[in-house]
Design a protein around this nucleic acid. Sequence first.
DNA 1: CCTTCTATGTATAACTA
DNA 2: TTAGTTATACATAGAAG
Lengths: 219, 219
Amino acid sequence: MARKKVTLAWISNDAKRRATLKKRRNGLFKKVNELSTLCDVPACAIVYAPDEAQPEVWPMEPEAKRILEHLKAMPESEQRKKRVNQEGFAMQRMVKLEEQIFKQQREIRELEMKIVMHQCTAGRKLVDLGIEDLGILERLVDDTLKDVHERIVQVRNLNPNLNSNPDAIIVREEKPIMMMDGCHGGGGGYLDDVVMKKPCMGSYENMLALMDASSFYPF
Amino acid sequence: MARKKVTLAWISNDAKRRATLKKRRNGLFKKVNELSTLCDVPACAIVYAPDEAQPEVWPMEPEAKRILEHLKAMPESEQRKKRVNQEGFAMQRMVKLEEQIFKQQREIRELEMKIVMHQCTAGRKLVDLGIEDLGILERLVDDTLKDVHERIVQVRNLNPNLNSNPDAIIVREEKPIMMMDGCHGGGGGYLDDVVMKKPCMGSYENMLALMDASSFYPF
DNA sequence: CCTTCTATGTATAACTA
DNA sequence: TTAGTTATACATAGAAG
């Protein structure tokens, strides 16, 4: 019954659109109520439905009307201020988008470095990496080392008589790169976040983030 | 971090109430947008914030007025076109940015999947390793770290002005990574469900539509 | 056209930096 | 304070009646 991901676009299917309108209008009005209750602020919402001469209004018309009177009375000069702010809106949004892109680029690089770590047995050489990638890799390896240390300490605490010194066993291989497969996850594994991380917010949410009152009404 | 069950009552704590107001107001306006986009109906919401002389209105306050007054349509559409042209540049840029973001998000997801694949293949966790394996691992990781250090020093000697701090990255070098050779089981169908989402144009078009010229130049 | 159901997406309370 | 995270509550798309 997998629910689709809701594409923000006009719903062409008639029945669906009407169903959605109804459900969401209810949800919207509920939210209006909650907001004005929780925060004790006057609030209202108005939705025109096709086929309905009068729009749905929430809360009761009279109160809504009172709320709306303020708008009518708002002087022009303030509207102009708002206009200016709204023009700046696009700018701000672009800045946000670019920031997001930058962050994502870093995230991508980091993931790539993690994979390099996994890959090393496949023969990748450090010589192929640029200085920046080396920096990232350094940190990752260091983190891994810390995780391993930590785990060793844990185990030692449980069994103080154990010894992890593998000198007698280990023969260093030609390749200096460790084989990471299977060394992650679970107990503080440094890679868990890769799996768990929530997908980045879409740009639309970003836009909403900009919809802060202070940007619009800075007087 | 358990989220409380939201008692539908006035929030007495000041900071909390303000935070909630802000969050929920954004959420509310987002819903208004979604509703009017999905179902193509005029809709608006108005929220008064304390400490603000004027209420928050969504969509643009003048548009809201129009909605409320059963606005008259025609002459405005032409002005809207003009408006859109004026904003055309910014809009196109934003579309580009959004596309880029979307592509990057897919890239990130793909990288994450590759790592997951590794984890699954390896199927072991740090916790699963015995003390000896941990010791071996420790040395391997440590050796790797040393190798990385060494390589960094080498590179620095060649180019003393280089900086390995990832934060300094601005433009990505040519993609140096070759991913996971041989790890894509046949067909690689596992990513098929990544649907090409239309770059969030809808919302901005909608926004522009709301930026009706008559609303902005009401003099 | 309604409900009702429920799996899944989204919003957001609480927390952290 | 504002921004970013995470876990959880809530909203709702799609299906079935």
